[in-house]
Design a protein around this nucleic acid. Structure first.
Length: 426
RNA sequence: GGAAGAGUGGCAGAGCUGGUUGAAUGCACCGGUCUUGAAAACCGGCGUACCUGUGAGGGUACCGGGGGUUCGAAUCCCUCCUCUUCCGCCA
């Protein structure tokens, strides 16, 4: 959620930012209305406060009359308060209405992009920030896509998943299951070695939590929902991890806040179809290790590069061809001010698969969840939040199988062998 | 799931027979005096948000969440949530 103060004070910058993010004219037009309504909010707040102040004063006077045994004289004061009270009720409901509609409007505005974000509308406009340095692997003509490899070696059963639940819920078996566990441990170990604190959060969260990181209201349809208990299945560990710091005021000495967690992620992915959902490409349930950082605003753009470097190291250790994209304004998520996507090369499919997305949200999340810190001058300010996948398992498994396939079997990268306990899948 | 009790500022803990209580007191924390330095002692400060004012300041709201009674509620009532204890169930 954008800060109202920024909307008021830096309207031109916000307009330019919204345009870069490919916002609609309707969204841009909201700014004027927001400022207008915020003026109204202030004026109604002032009236209300003055009125309540009067009520308080009169009530005190009545109290004194009662104490000094002049209760009989309180009658006219009481009726004064009664009428003021009626008026104040009206103002109160007016104020609430204005505040609600203000929030409704502000919530429709996406975050504004950082200066380094490239212009553009769609995926093709993203900037290739970095390409892996080694030559791309060349596979034989008999190379198989991962879903065939998974079947050939008995690693994953998509069929059984359909039987148990439905499509998009694969069952990992044998060395496939072991590979999953190895990757989880590998990623968690790498993250904790880099200084991230390991967290095991709940997989179901309440409305308030889903709201604070921005999943509600706009991504409601993407989450699984337990109606009976009013809980949402998390679409990413970002939700519970970042919310750990909801409504808090950090001391500067609390920085850096570095969290990591492994969780399954649940996504309805309504509307996806075709080759997008083939094999492991897009699942309703997949495993992911997330890294989250809460930072001083002065540091957040250094920190995002640290996170990029961390993920890059992981992919190098897994010996997977990758590229890093700096997303253009039109392709970035609603919440983000700057996003780097990592894609690994799916050799047998001949396409890039997104395996990580690292974003700086600046104060967009912290504003909504009241995540502040105390600055040197003693004042509270909103902290910056960042997160990234490090890494998402399913697609890593897909490209791992495809890129490391040989006529003898699938080679396990060196770094992973201590975790798998085998160096070859045969 | 059933029964009883409880939820107050960073923590501990008063207030809960309704009226200078945003909230005693202690600890923690910050500043100062003292000291070669530190500790102790003493003095002062010490919540968040919003409105208003150039500023000093003034005002409003908040004592788990929401609603109600009342001229007035941390204090009374309703409801929800959470915690503790006992019973039941269970990995």
């Amino acid at each position: 959620m954008l800060e109202i103060g920024n909307i008021r004070e830096e309207k031109d910058r916000i307009v330019a930012g919204l345009k870069k993010k490919n916002a609609s004219q309707d969204q841009i037009d909201l700014l004027e209305k927001i400022i207008f309504d915020d003026d109204r909010r202030k004026s109604v707040q002032t009236q209300l406060d003055n009125m309540l102040s009067q009520i308080n004063k009169l009530s005190d006077e009545i109290g004194i009359l009662f104490k000094t045994g002049k209760a009989a004289e309180a009658g006219s004061l009481k009726s004064q308060v009664a009428s003021l009270k009626e008026e104040s009720k009206l103002l109160e409901s007016e104020l609430k209405e204005i505040k609600d509609s203000l929030e409704d409007m502000i919530i429709q505005l996406p975050n504004t992009p950082h200066a380094t974000v490239p212009h553009g509308l769609k995926a093709e406009d993203n900037e290739v920030f970095k390409l892996w340095e080694k030559p791309m692997p060349v596979l034989g003509s008999d190379a198989l896509p991962h879903w065939e490899l998974a079947e050939k070696y008995g690693l994953i059963s998509f069929k059984d998943g359909v039987m148990l639940t439905g499509s998009g819920f694969p069952v990992y078996k044998n060395k496939g299951a072991r590979l999953q566990r190895a990757l989880i441990n590998f990623f968690l170990d790498e993250a904790t070695a880099a200084g991230y604190q390991e967290i095991q959060p709940p997989l179901l969260v309440n409305k308030e939590t889903a709201r604070a990181t921005g999943q509600l209201p706009d991504k409601e349809g993407q989450m699984y929902y337990c109606e009976k208990d009013d809980f949402y299945l998390i679409p990413t560990a970002e939700v519970p991890l970042t919310n750990l710091y909801r409504d808090t005021i950090l001391q500067k000495s609390d920085f850096p806040v570095m969290l990591t967690g492994y969780t399954p992620c649940f996504r309805r992915e309504a509307g996806s179809y075709g080759s997008d959902v083939k094999g492991l490409n897009r699942l309703h349930q997949f495993d992911k290790i997330e890294i989250v950082r809460i930072e001083h605003p002065d540091r957040s753009y250094d920190v995002i590069m640290e996170m990029v470097a961390h993920v890059e190291k992981l992919l190098i250790k897994l010996e997977l061809p990758f590229r890093i994209l700096r997303l253009c304004g039109g392709d970035m998520s609603f919440n983000s001010a700057l996003t780097f996507d990592f894609e690994t090369w799916s050799a047998a499919q001949g396409r890039w698969l997104e395996v990580s997305s690292i974003s700086n949200f600046e104060t967009f999340q912290s504003n909504r969840m009241k995540l502040r810190f105390r600055d040197d001058d003693g004042k509270t300010r909103l902290a910056h939040t960042l997160n990234g996948s490090a890494l998402a398992l399913a697609r890593i498994v897909a490209t791992l199988l495809e890129n490391h396939q040989t006529p003898q079997g699938i080679k396990v990268p060196q770094a992973l062998q201590t975790y798998t306990g085998f160096d070859m899948i045969t």
